Every structure is written in C-alpha cells, then in structure tokens.
Simulated assay, not measured.
Amino acid sequence: MTHPALARAEAFAATYGLRRPVLLAPMAGACPPALSLAVMRAGGLGACGALPMQPPAILAWAEAVREAGPFQINLWIPDPAPVRDPAHEARLRAFLGGFGPAVAPEAGDAMPPDFFAQCEAVIQARPRIVSSIMGLYPPDLVARFKASGIAWWATVTTVAEALAAEAAGADAVVAQGAEAGGHRGSFDPARAEMAAVGLMALLPAVVDAVTIPVVATGGIADARGAAAALLLGEIEDRIAFLRSLRVPPPGRLAGTWSNLFGTVTVTPGTDGGLAVKVDANEPITARWTCGAEGKGRLAGDVLTVSLGEDGSALTLAREGETLTLGAVPGKGEAEGTADYCGLNGSVDGTYFFVTPAAPAR
C-alpha cells in the first residue's frame, strides 16, 4: 500500500508527465543538456538555469532535450539597476588584481542578457514549466506563459513570498530553505539573511499557508531528507500521524505544547485545577499576536478556561499526541476573533507536546 504522502507526490508528478517526483535544480551554468537527459530518462524533470543564456542558446538547449520528456526553464527576475561607485569599484579591481590578472576598468559595465528577450525565447521554446527566482513575473508575462500552456513555479523563501506568488498566479511554489547553497531566491536580498529559515521549518508553514502545490528544496541530500519533506507536505498527514501514537505524555493536558505560531503552558494547581497560559506569535518575525491566562477544570475530555465576564474562553482537548486549542468569542465578538489577540491574531489550532509540567506544590 502506497503511503499517502508518496501518493500525493506521485500524483503531482503525473500532472506534469513525470514518472518520478524528482526534479533537477535549474542551477545557472550547471545544467548541460546531458545532465537533464539523464534525469528525464529516469522519469524526473529536466531543468535549465537560463540566467546567463542568450535567447538562441535557450532555444538550442530546449531542442536538445525535448525528445526525452517534460522540462523546466528558470529565469531570474531582474535586480534594480545598481548604484555605481567608481572609487569603490577601483578599490575592488585593485584588490582582485592581487590574486590574478588585472581587472579591466570596464569590467563593471557588463550587462546580463535582456530579460524580456529571454522570456520571449521561453515562450517560443514552450517548456512544460517556467520557474522564477528572486521575485515574481509581471502579470502580462504570466498571462502569456499560461496562454502558451506553460505552467509557472515560483521559488520562495518565506511564507509571505509564497502567499504573494499564489496571489500572482503561480501554479506551484518551490519552498527553498536556508540550506540552499551560498544564496537563496529571496525577493528582497537586503532581508535575506534576517529571514533565513531552515527547510524543515519553512516547508510546513508554506504548505499550511497556500492552496497550490509546494515543492521542497534546500539541503535534501539523502532518502531521510526526502522522506521528511514528503511527510511535512500536508498538515493533515502530520496531525494524523501524531494522533495515531499511543504513548501519552504524563498528566493528560499538563505540560508545554507548541506549534509554529505559539506556546500553550498547562500547569497543575494545588486545588486540582489547571492553570493555562497562551502566547502566540507571528512566524519568522516572532511579533506577538495573542496572549491569555486563566484557570479551569476538566469536564470529561475538555478543559474550558474562562477569560472574562463577556463569556470569552479557551477550550483545550487531547487528541492522541496533540492538543487542540479553540477560542470561544465573547458576547459581541465575531467568530474567530478574541479581545486578547491583536489584528489577525489567533490561538486556534493543533499544538504538539514539548515538555512535561512541573508538579504542583
């Protein structure tokens, strides 16, 4: 019987005419046709990192691999024009010249191939997929790609970038973790270091945020990494797995529980009740969004914690190895809102056991 995670990956691959859910990374300067042909003939997706290529070279590459099956072509979204500093450039040339041949004064005038001419070549080449990195394609190009039967995959490095890509019409996002080499496909290079997130933390957050397929990349080097990425592919898969475990943490609810968005601490009281403290934060920036404290007693399998005279409350219930937390709005509050949360904040969700609580004194 095929595991649901693998079945999902195989179904995604079949959508693009692949026999295996393995995709060659479109590394600029490291995608000779022979490499893609080997991957494609094994059932995976060939790829061309076309950043340094002129339009005729893009077309020639596509023709060299077309007979073997589907492939993708990747382009970098252009950077803004650089701010030139002649004095600084002169110092750099002198420094680099100390390690090899002299650097010509006009070296800094070099320009990459024309981006829009490259896009025209991609439309003419008609790959199964065009992918982007360092940003998003303009709407008019997205429309033309799709009119030509070319799907668009957008490389993203944060949840915010994934949401922007989906809103712009991407057919899938490629979640690229901080492990992905010396640089990543961040939309804003100035924030790239501050927003660096490892793949195994980034992947489930992106999957939970978007409705389109998510491809994992960055630091996957063996079968263990591939299996972990597949299992992180759907929140339902992760929750079902954890609920299936039958070695409960001590104390039923007592202890510290966490998920990507925050922490719930349940502490036994000397009176037999349970004290609950909830803190929720926005992922990546860790900006506070919600906070609440209260006490309650178990009634059957559910702990209800009253938070105010308006009737607002929290409900906590164990489900296998998980804790489900729900916010009950007070009178006059809309469903899904709470006066102890900031704008767009929420504490609802599934939390996972971290540490047992200290015994009551």
Rank of each mutant, 00 (worst) to 15 (best):
V65C: 01
G177E: 02
I220F: 03
E309I: 14
D171Q: 03
A102F: 12
D301W: 09
G336K: 05
R238H: 04
R84L: 14
V266K: 03
E89R: 02
G225H: 05
V210T: 06
V347A: 08
G177Q: 04
R361D: 12
V197K: 02
G198Y: 05
V305T: 09
V264W: 02
G98V: 12
Q72E: 00
P32G: 07
G345Q: 07
E67F: 07
G349M: 03
A110N: 06
A117L: 13
D310G: 14
V65Q: 01
R238T: 09
G185M: 01
L45Y: 00
V156E: 03
P213E: 01
A299I: 07
D114K: 10
V197E: 05
S36A: 05
T256E: 08
G149A: 03
D348G: 12
T304N: 11
K277P: 06
L242Q: 14
R252S: 13
M194A: 13
H183R: 15
T289S: 12
G251K: 05
A50G: 15
A205R: 01
W61C: 02
V302H: 07
D188E: 11
R361K: 12
P33K: 02
Q176M: 04
A50S: 13
A5G: 09
V354K: 14
A229R: 01
V122K: 01
I73Q: 00
A143M: 13
F352G: 02
A107F: 09
I239T: 14
P112T: 10
A226D: 03
R126H: 06
N74G: 07
V214K: 00
P250G: 15
A147K: 04
G330M: 08
G330S: 11
A275G: 14
I133P: 04
P78T: 11
M27C: 06
A14M: 12
A299V: 10
A313M: 08
R361A: 14
A275L: 12
F115E: 06
P70R: 01
A107V: 09
A209I: 10
F95Y: 13
E335P: 08
P52F: 08
M27V: 10
A223Q: 15
P213A: 03
R184P: 01
V328N: 12
V197C: 05
L343D: 12
P55R: 06
P249C: 04
L163G: 11
D208H: 12
G108V: 05
G294M: 05
L23S: 03
E309V: 15
L314D: 07
A94V: 11
V347R: 03
P356F: 14
P250S: 11
M194W: 09
A7D: 10
V22S: 04
P250W: 10
K277A: 14
P101E: 10
G320E: 09
T289M: 08
